[in-house]
């Protein structure tokens, strides 16, 4: 019998961080948090969970991305600028903070526009630091396919973030 309060206490932080970063909004992150554990509960009825942290990360990422996409399709464009984030452990001048917030806003928009599997692979790899093998396990694809998904995701994001590219990279994007 799964001890759910214990599971939530142990892995709740992972789900919260994942959802809150992507959604940039406490209320949405709270909804996503609950959906994540309900989904985990439903999964646990049909199979034995071997790796709770990876599962919680994947479920939270998927739900947060779904919500991000829905916000975008509903025309709620305030994906990123409603609650500006302070960069961790750094004090930056206001223009730099504004620029970074705009970058994060564009990143969220870019992730919301990517096909679901690319966005998920990208988040798991670059935001959650999962290995290719872990991502392949979680997404139930081959390691090579993970590479393809990341390749495509990076190309799309590169075009989306062209304005933030260093000059040499930007000229490459425009070519």
């Amino acid at each position: 019998m799964t001890d759910w309060p214990q599971i939530i206490a142990t892995y709740g932080g992972i789900a919260w961080k994942t959802a809150r970063r992507l959604l940039n909004n406490d209320a949405d992150a709270a909804d996503c948090f609950q959906e994540t554990f309900v989904a985990a509960f439903e999964l646990s009825r049909t199979k034995t969970i071997q790796n709770w942290p990876d599962l919680v990360t994947r479920l939270a990422t998927r739900r947060a991305l779904d919500r991000l996409r829905k916000r975008k399709s509903d025309g709620l464009v305030s994906i990123g600028l409603d609650e500006a984030l302070e960069p961790a452990g750094r004090s930056m001048p206001p223009p730099a903070v504004a620029e970074e917030n705009e970058l994060f806003h564009q990143l969220r928009e870019g992730l919301a526009e990517l096909p679901a599997d690319q966005a998920e692979a990208c988040c798991l790899r670059f935001l959650e630091s999962l290995s290719y093998e872990q991502i392949a396990d979680e997404l139930d694809v081959t390691v090579n396919h993970v590479g393809v998904l990341l390749h495509r995701a990076k190309l799309s994001l590169k075009n989306r973030l062209a304005a933030f590219a260093p000059v040499s990279d930007e000229s490459e994007v425009n070519r």
Binding site: R21, A29, F33, L107, L155, L161, P166
Partner: peptide, 21 residues
């Protein structure tokens, strides 16, 4: 070569998140 994308994602990862849940 699109390292700036990874840099951006890295900065995003390092950004602070409200304490919770």
């Amino acid at each position: 070569k699109s390292d700036f994308v990874e840099d951006a994602l890295m900065a995003f990862r390092e950004s602070s998140v409200t304490e919770g849940p």
